[in-house]
């Protein structure tokens, strides 16, 4: 018999490979976040100072994070969801309450970012970075003023638009445009939004949530409804890309840090959150990614140039944080938008 031996050898090889995973968890932090969103320099700095080893596992979207947690995967000490995902996680008891006594640097955060609707008492989450969803206009190609969603979704701009590939987002823009409440969606308001969305979807050339800036930079489209971080990068690249907060209303999102319920290394997780809240550390994150920094002390350290970026630090416009509850009926509309 020739086969069993190589099979056995293979099994032992597999076992050997599996071993390093089960290292004792003393002085370890298992972080689950967007890769590069937490800069490597920040992680290295934390490890150097505290001796705590950071296992950084990465995902590409909130939904991936939730799916993996829900399917029973991984044992994480710190996760980095967006506000709407955090809200559902709090409701589903997936997050552990924070101990604010261990987070003295919380005082650095702007009061605006402390008790948001997703976590009204501020018990579970700490703001990491924030941004908005707004309109980017290539002013070389589009000469007329663009003030809101109504101006973007016009038949003359057919095949010149990029929007986020996110049915919930698109539905909320339609609700804003119709003047309907975005929080507390009803069957009736969705029925009204549906035809609007169906019309809009026909005009769009590209749906892209990951890198909507690509189509704009390439000149394949002239207008976009995108994340402010993307808009900020575009503005840095070329001032012809103007960022506009939609007049009808725009949604502000906050990415937060939170500790999953049952996390083993909660002390280390608190230490890490507190480290991130230091102005000089938070500043590094801003330098890497031009989102809106919620840290007042860190903002004082930013360069005038960074602060002047209208996409990162918008001066006007109506912002609203959304409670984006996922209900069955809402999904129907979303599905329709996808399939149309």
């Amino acid at each position: 018999m020739n086969l069993p031996r190589p099979t056995r050898r293979l099994a032992s090889l597999l076992l050997a490979l599996a071993l390093p995973v089960s290292v004792p968890a003393a002085g370890v932090l298992n972080l689950f976040g967007w890769s590069e969103y937490v800069p490597q320099t920040v992680i290295d700095g934390f490890t150097k100072e505290t001796g705590i080893k950071v296992n950084f596992e990465t995902y590409a979207s909130n939904e991936e994070l939730i799916s993996k947690l829900v399917a029973g995967g991984g044992r994480y000490d710190l996760v980095q969801p967006s506000d709407y995902a955090a809200e559902v996680m709090i409701r589903q008891k997936l997050l552990a309450p924070l101990d604010s006594a261990r987070l003295p640097n919380l005082k650095n955060l702007l009061p605006d970012f402390l008790r948001r609707p997703h976590d009204p008492e501020g018990r579970y989450t700490v703001a990491y970075m924030s941004g908005t969803v707004g309109i980017v206009v290539n002013t070389e190609k589009v000469k007329e003023p663009i003030k809101g969603y109504r101006d973007v979704f016009q038949p003359k701009f057919k095949n010149r638009l990029v929007v986020l590939n996110d049915s919930r987002e698109i539905v909320s823009w339609a609700l804003y445009t119709l003047g309907l409440p975005v929080n507390g969606i009803s069957k009736e308001s969705l029925a009204k939004a549906r035809p609007v969305v169906a019309e809009w979807v026909k005009l769009v050339k590209v749906f892209d949530s990951d890198s909507p800036k690509t189509a704009l930079l390439n000149g394949d489209v002239d207008l976009g409804v995108v994340w402010s971080g993307e808009a900020a990068i575009l503005w840095n690249q070329n001032k012809k890309f103007q960022y506009v907060i939609p007049a009808e209303g725009a949604h502000q999102f906050i990415d937060v840090l939170a500790i999953p319920a049952g996390a083993k290394n909660q002390a280390e997780a608190h230490q890490f959150i507190n480290y991130i809240l230091r102005p000089e550390v938070s500043k590094l994150i801003s330098a890497a990614f031009p989102y809106t920094n919620p840290n007042a002390a860190a903002r004082r350290l930013l360069s005038p140039q960074e602060l002047a970026n209208p996409a990162s630090y918008p001066k006007e416009g109506k912002l609203e944080s959304q409670e984006r509850e996922m209900r069955r009926k809402e999904r129907r509309i979303g599905g329709g938008a996808q399939a149309a």
Partner: peptide
């Protein structure tokens, strides 16, 4: 890979796609 990996065994595609948030 994403659903079956831990931090220690994460492969290149996991890191690459994770960069989507901040741009490749």
């Amino acid at each position: 890979t994403f659903f079956t990996t831990s931090a220690a065994s994460a492969t290149l595609p996991i890191r690459v796609f994770g960069m989507a948030k901040v741009g490749l």
